[in-house]
């Protein structure tokens, strides 16, 4: 078995708004190993996004431990979390979140700008990344000149910009038609297979979840069950 990348211990998260308290996550114990392709599913409001955001260091749990690469990120300060996000996390949003005034290439290079990579290196890397998601030659287009599927592929390339330890995607196919859905999933799968990239993907779409290696089902903030997807390790070796 490969090394543990994420480990949560009794991770809980509650949102307090006014007098109401919502327990979005309750005592989640979850282990994700390096190189896994995990789908997190569940009904709306079951806590998928909440869990993913905490794993991605975009948010903090209310209690419990979150170990990311051996570091308890719950104990890190805001600027340390920033650094973790910059260096170790590649996040893909359901709504792409590309900056409209930047070209595809510039969007991909954006995270590298904090990383202080030299300009030629950045250009080289963004060109490679765009090619790897099938967008060679589209680097100069703005988001509004790209289709939804293409935009999401730019977003995946951006997530990979700083060579993260894991790609975390929240409903990456939620806004896409079946063809683009398939394209995005196969990019993520290829990433997982070819580079051993850890992928954690939130989806409420059963078909999409089935294409992962392991499915974690949430219900009302708890892990209801775990199962295997159709994307098995054996299949992985064949591909």
């Amino acid at each position: 078995m490969s090394e543990v990348l994420f480990k949560t211990e009794k991770l809980s998260k509650s949102y307090v708004s006014g007098r109401r308290t919502v327990n979005a996550l309750e005592e989640i114990d979850l282990v994700i190993r390096r190189g896994e392709f995990v789908a997190i599913t569940g009904h709306s409001g079951s806590g998928k996004t909440t869990l993913l955001n905490i794993l991605a260091c975009l948010d903090r749990g209310s209690s419990g431990k979150v170990l990311f690469d051996g570091v308890d990120v719950q104990k890190l300060g805001a600027s340390e979390l920033n650094r973790v996000r910059r260096d170790k996390v590649g996040f893909v949003f359901q709504s792409f979140n590309l900056l409209p005034y930047l070209s595809a290439k510039e969007n991909v290079e954006l995270p590298m700008e904090v990383g202080r990579l030299r300009k030629e290196k950045r250009t080289e890397r963004s060109t490679d990344l765009l090619a790897s998601v099938g967008l060679e030659g589209r680097g100069d287009h703005r988001p509004n000149q790209l289709s939804a599927g293409e935009q999401q592929r730019v977003a995946i390339a951006r997530a990979l910009a700083n060579g993260p330890s894991a790609v975390l995607a929240d409903e990456p196919t939620g806004n896409l038609d079946p063809d683009n859905k398939a394209a995005v999933i196969s990019i993520l799968r290829r990433l997982n297979i070819e580079q051993g990239m850890t992928v954690i993907m939130v989806t409420h779409d059963g078909d999409v979840a089935e294409r992962s290696e392991r499915i974690v089902r949430l219900a009302k903030g708890k892990i209801r069950s775990e199962g295997r997807g159709k994307f098995l390790r054996t299949e992985r070796k064949e591909t």
Partner: peptide, 15 residues
């Protein structure tokens, strides 16, 4: 929202 994105990508507050 843009600042949220920049933060998510690891841009610091100072930036």
């Amino acid at each position: 929202k843009e600042f949220g994105l920049l933060k998510a990508l690891g841009f610091g507050n100072a930036h």
